[in-house]
C-alpha cells in the first residue's frame, strides 16, 4: 500500500491536497485543501488511532491488544494529542501570517 506523504521531502513543510479525482468518471477537482488533522499524523500514529477507535476508545483494551502497560498506551495517546495540537497551532499561525 502506498503511504500518503504529509511533509514536503524538500523543505519538510506540511503538504496540501492540490487535486482530487473520481476513479469512475475521471472528473478532477483542482484546489488547495488542508489535510485533515488525523491524516497529517505518521502512519504509525494513524494505525494507533485506528486501533484506538476500534477499541471504543478504551485504553485498557488497547493495552491488552498491544501487550503494553496502561500508562505506556496512555502516554502514546498523549504524545499524539500533543502533536495534533502543535500542528493546529502552526496551521493557525500560518493562516494569520497569510492574512
Amino acid at each position: 500500500m502506498k503511504v500518503l506523504p504529509t511533509r514536503c521531502p524538500s523543505c519538510n513543510s506540511q503538504l496540501k491536497v492540490k487535486s482530487l479525482v473520481c476513479e469512475q468518471c475521471r472528473t478532477e477537482i483542482q484546489g488547495e485543501y488542508e489535510l485533515p488533522a488525523l491524516a497529517r499524523l505518521s502512519s504509525d500514529d494513524q494505525a494507533f488511532m485506528l486501533e484506538f477507535i476500534k477499541a471504543s476508545g478504551s485504553l485498557k483494551e488497547m493495552a491488552r491488544l498491544l501487550r503494553l502497560s496502561y500508562p505506556t498506551v496512555r502516554n502514546r495517546l498523549d504524545d499524539i494529542i500533543e502533536r495534533i495540537k502543535l500542528a493546529e497551532k502552526s496551521e493557525g499561525n500560518e493562516r494569520e501570517e497569510k492574512l
Binding site: 503494553l68 502497560s69 500508562p71 505506556t72
Partner: peptide
C-alpha cells in the same frame, strides 16, 4: 519493565 507491566499487576 513498566512498558509492559503497571497498575494492579505491578
Amino acid at each position: 519493565p513498566f512498558k509492559f507491566v503497571a497498575g494492579c499487576k505491578a
